[in-house]
Amino acid sequence: MNCTRAQTSICAARDAALPPAEAAELSAHLNGCAECRAFKTTLENGLARWRAETAAVAVPDAELEWRAVRRRIQAESQRGAFGLPEAWLRPLRWAALPLGAAAAAAVVFFASPDRKPAAERSADVASAQPVTVEVPGDASAMVMVDDRSGWVFVVASDPRPRDL
C-alpha cells in the first residue's frame, strides 16, 4: 500500500469500518509511515471541526455554502483548508466527507490539478467548481480529486458493521 492509497483508506475508515484485509494493510502502512500517521491525526482533528461547523449550517444550500467555504479558505490560505498544512492537502486535493445523514449532500470544491505555489492557489480556489453528491439511506460519500491526473473520484459507501 502506498501513501495515496493509505490516505484514501484513512478517509474511508472515517465513514465505515474497513474490510479486514484493507484495515490490516493500512495498519501495516501506518506502522512504518510517520507521514500517514500524522495525516490521520490531523484529518481526524480537522474533520471534527469541519463536521461541527457543517452541522451548524441549517440550510445546506450549495451556493451559500460555497461562498462561506470560499471566504474561509481565503482567510485560511496560509494554513490550508480545514487547518491542514498544505503538504497534506496536496495528495487528496479538496477531499471532503459529508455527514452520514440520509440523502447527505457532500459539497466539495476543487481547482484544476496544476502545481502552483500556495500564493497562487487562492485564485485557483476562487474559480473552483463544487462537486455535490447525494446518496440514499444511511450511505455516506467521499469525493477526491487526484492531483496528478485530475480524475474526480466519488465513492459512496454503505455502512458496515463495525466489528466483523
Binding site: 474490510p19 484493507e22 484544476s112 467548481q129 463544487p130 462537486v131 455535490t132 453528491v133 447525494e134 446518496v135 440514499p136 450511505a139 460519500a141 491526473s149 485530475g150 480524475w151 474526480v152 473520484f153 466519488v154 465513492v155 459512496a156 459507501s157 454503505d158 458496515r160 458493521p161
Partner: peptide, 26 residues
C-alpha cells in the same frame, strides 16, 4: 431502478469522473 448515487460535477476532457458504490462487502 434503485438509487445508487446522484452527483453533479465538472468534467474535463481526458479526465473521467469515477463513481464507486461500495456495499457491505468489497
Amino acid at each position: 431502478g434503485a438509487a445508487m448515487m446522484t452527483t453533479s460535477l465538472p468534467l474535463r476532457a481526458g479526465a473521467p469522473a469515477v463513481l464507486v458504490r461500495r456495499g457491505g462487502k468489497d
